[in-house]
Design a protein around this nucleic acid. Structure first.
Lengths: 345, 345
DNA sequence: AAATGTAGGTAAAACGTTTTATCTGAAAAA
DNA sequence: TTTTTCAGATAAAACGTTTTACCTACATTT
């Protein structure tokens, strides 16, 4: 049983394909009688336009390509549903790919998407893909970067305000009386990691605390979990004066949690902690870890809006196409209430 | 700068589109000289076939639709990469959708995929979608169910061997000397949940233990986490004799973990536990929770093979298209070593 | 009565491929 | 020499739409 086409409808209603197409798309002029008749039979026969034929003719695939670092990751999980919903409102579908934080794979995915004639791209940038993305820009393909960006390149992006997110956390720690705050980060060459680090050092300076290099630990991205846990342990042991520790990503925070738990450190009694980027695990067990949460739905919505604007589907009320969205401080119990040591005590 | 088409290549090489197509697809007869020339210019110009035009002409979209319960879920995360890899080997792409365990949404997604002319479907079944899936079957569309199936309907599927997975866990507990084993499950109307429950009762019977209804707790699927945690707590408190507890899914296990931790129960000293379906959290903290792990990559690979076979892309060496894959018992430390109370002690 | 306008409708081209059927010219067979 | 064969190449149709340009018949204006 073949699928029913516009020609079939035309034959059944004794009209031409043109008229059917006009009626179905609300173009041209057609008498009320014919309009009704065509609409009725189309409905009765369950006519669905062949999207492929439409795409070929119109040059629009109505597909958006999303390239993300890792489809298993929590960022993707949080972001995908919102993207899908927004896209659907405007008749777009999404094709997902993962770059595995790997230049070759990322490039391959971009080619694949181009090949499949997607109308626009949402990409979480990997270092090394700058040129490929710029090629899209110069060929006028709509692109939005998400979760990171390429500094110096004029490409629309939307991400969390990393600097001020970290600042909120550090402020919170300092307010609570902590003074020797450690920072654990990772050696990924991504702008957001740099901004997080500078959020840390600048906020300390703002509070007249001199950043101490020994209190910063930079782990290798491709370390195993065990290696990370061990490195964090010896970092903590080496810095006896450290009374709080800030993790720059959630997987670092999780490794840290495990490390502290191995060493039988109590949080927050022995050491306070905050992690950037919330995760189910942080809310799960006593005492509950305070985090800087990314507003993922908002990020997704903003990214899709930016893209739809470029696609001409949506009026923009935005002046800029470079968006930073504030992060949320989620207070749990890994930071102790101020028990400030009074100077005259 | 328009994309280059087969006509362009024809013009450049002084041949016809037919010849170019033949050369590029290895069909027809073409002299070596022309072949080389065409291949060379195609490469030089970076020719990529317009997949949409190909699809329209051949009737093959080279796209596989995947409908999963929830794109944020861990099952999806684990399975997606493997599916993608396998699909790519045969030139297929994947479009992902989530049904949100919701009949209306699931149906909508299936329509959307049909509309987009996908060549085949991989679906994690939701109750209520039986008819829609059967409609696909009768219209000869390739379909594979994953992670569950519809009992009584002749639709290919691949999932973990739930019954024997549970059996392994119960055996393990009994071997270690536990006798009053509780079971926490959820009221989802899915065959795999029934099989897990019967795995529990049958294995107990096999060991001459009479299943006790009071030791089975069935939670509502749409409960909040808090409600689950509370229900589990009172369940544990009500059954003082219970020395081990088996959770039928990972989110139940996580709730249980939190519940036990709230009540200051020590695992495995106060109570032993096992959860079906592994999760990062279970490996993370002392003591480490023993789980029944689903071999997700294998499941994904098997499902894709089944589908590719139906698509005629792959020779099958399989007799059946209904596959159950053994689960793995991952021993951690939530089950204490046998300290069997000797009858004569 | 002739010219003009207009509502309602359609033929045909186009999108970029694949594939069938056919055409050409030269070599081989008669 | 004429016929057959066959390798090598291509014209044209088809996939299912959208859209341009045009046609018809009737009403209105001059």
């Amino acid at each position: 049983m073949k699928k029913i086409s516009i020609k079939d409808i035309a034959r059944m209603t004794g009209t031409s394909p043109t008229t059917v197409s006009f009626v179905l798309n609300g173009k041209g002029r057609t008498s009320d009688a014919l309009t009704k008749k065509i609409l009725a039979t189309a409905k009765k026969e369950g006519y669905q336009p062949n999207q492929i034929a439409v795409s070929l003719r119109t040059g629009q695939s109505k597909v958006i390509g999303l390239i993300v670092e890792n489809m298993g990751g929590s960022f993707f999980g949080a972001v995908s549903k919102e993207l899908e919903n927004e896209a659907k409102k405007y008749g777009y579908r999404i094709v997902y790919c993962s770059s595995e934080n790997n230049v070759r794979k990322g490039r391959e995915m971009m080619e694949m998407l181009a090949h499949q004639q997607v109308d626009g791209y949402i990409i979480t940038p990997t270092a090394g893909l700058e040129k490929d993305v710029m090629k899209l820009m110069t060929s006028k393909k709509p692109v939005v970067l998400m979760d990171s960006y390429y500094p110096g390149l004029d490409i629309p992006y939307v991400l969390v305000d990393n600097f001020n997110g970290i600042k909120q956390g550090i402020d919170h720690l300092i307010e609570a009386g902590y003074e020797n705050i450690g920072f654990v980060t990772v050696d990924l060459d991504l702008i957001q990691m740099k901004e997080r680090l500078s959020g840390y050092t600048e906020t300390l300076k703002f509070h007249k605390i001199k950043p101490d290099k020994k209190l910063v630990l930079t782990l290798k991205y491709d370390s195993t979990k065990e290696e990370m846990v061990n490195e964090i342990s010896s970092f903590v042991r080496k810095n006896k004066n450290m009374d709080a520790i800030f993790f720059a990503t959630n997987y670092l925070g999780i490794a840290g949690l495990q490390s502290l738990s191995n060493m039988k450190y109590k949080v927050p009694e022995d050491i306070a902690m905050i992690s950037f980027d919330d995760h189910e695990i942080f809310s799960l067990f006593a005492p509950g870890i305070t985090t800087i949460q990314q507003p993922t739905e908002e990020i997704a919505r903003a990214a899709m809006n930016l893209l739809l604007t470029q696609l001409g589907k949506k009026e923009s009320n935005l002046i800029t196409n470079k968006i930073q969205i504030p992060a949320n401080l989620v207070r749990r119990n890994s930071v102790k209430k101020a028990k400030r040591v009074m100077p005259n005590a």
